[in-house]
Amino acid sequence: MSGDWPLWEVFVRAKAGLAHRHVGSVHAPDAQLALRHARDTYTRRTEGVSLWVVPSAEIVASDPDEAGPMFEPAADKIYRHPTFYDIPDEVKHI
């Protein structure tokens, strides 16, 4: 039966202030039940305070065959990392 249902990607916000993170997917006949299934599958152990579900078919993904041109040129651009600054000890979460 679930084979007939579309797939939904599930995102969970672990606590207020954090971004939603992708945790997996569920089958469901519609958006509301996708939220219910996501709740029952991925937040059973108090993993979250907020849920997003997105139809998997709506995800636009990069082509794995294009990974070279897409991502490798960034590898030798160390000056793009903010590692040339002295960060004061008081500044957290960087």
Binding site: M1, S2, W5, V26, H27, A28, R36, H37, D40, T41, R44
Partner: peptide, 12 residues
Amino acid sequence: APALEVDLSLAN
């Protein structure tokens, strides 16, 4: 249950 997800719902 009719689907794995429903199985979990009912168990919950």
